[in-house]
Amino acid sequence: MTQYIADELMTVAAARALSNNDVCFVGIGAPSAACNLARLTHAPDITLIYESGTIGTAPEVLPLSIGDGELCDTAVTTVPVPEMFRYWLQGGRITVGFLGAAQLDRFGNINTTVVGDYHAPKVRLPGGGGAPEIASSCQQIFITMKQARRSFVRQIDFFTSFGHGRGGPHRQELGITTAGPTLLITDKAVWRPDPETKEFTVMSLHPGVTQADMADTVGWDIRYGADVEETPPPTTEELEVLRALKARTAAAHVKEVA
């Protein structure tokens, strides 16, 4: 079997969760890599949407921003940003919203706004962008990010976007009709929310990952499913396609201008 790094398996596992029939609202960074890998492997007809208004885009390299020109060049259509958020997102056309986070809690609530107090922040982060409404309007939410103590926290500092709140039926209590976070893919494991409590539960560990590794990188007491499996490693094809995509991307983004 080909050697791979944890980051690659994270992207591959996230890509596998997407299907040909999905209409996916893509966040930048790790989600963008996973969504495009899915498109380039098992889901060639997946519709990828970036919040800049590009619908059905198929970039040759991963965009640095959500509005790189290639997204528009390869899109089925490009719509104005108000239309993007009103008709396509709020209108309920998106099956999966794919997000990353700076801080995440065990109920899939996301913070990308501040570390510390909002009015006197220790660190001012970029903020939510499209995420608050992606989190509530997409039929379901996938989250992908690396595990670390400072990001997988017991309590997030700010509710940029709402996952399952304090768990259980909290979404329904707020009048939210969509499923919310249904999948969390990290560099160590695949997690799904418990059907009742909505707390993220480990469904599979990546090859070689121990429960001690998990405890070292997660700031809450981890729940494990009844039958924790081993995440299937990347196939040779998945790795080749992912590495070629990343190599094209790196070459395109560092091109210096004299």
Partner: peptide, 13 residues
């Protein structure tokens, strides 16, 4: 008017 900020912290600040 739109369907937004559901459960989100910005409306508190």
């Amino acid at each position: 008017v739109f369907r937004g900020y559901l459960g989100a912290g910005l409306k508190d600040v």
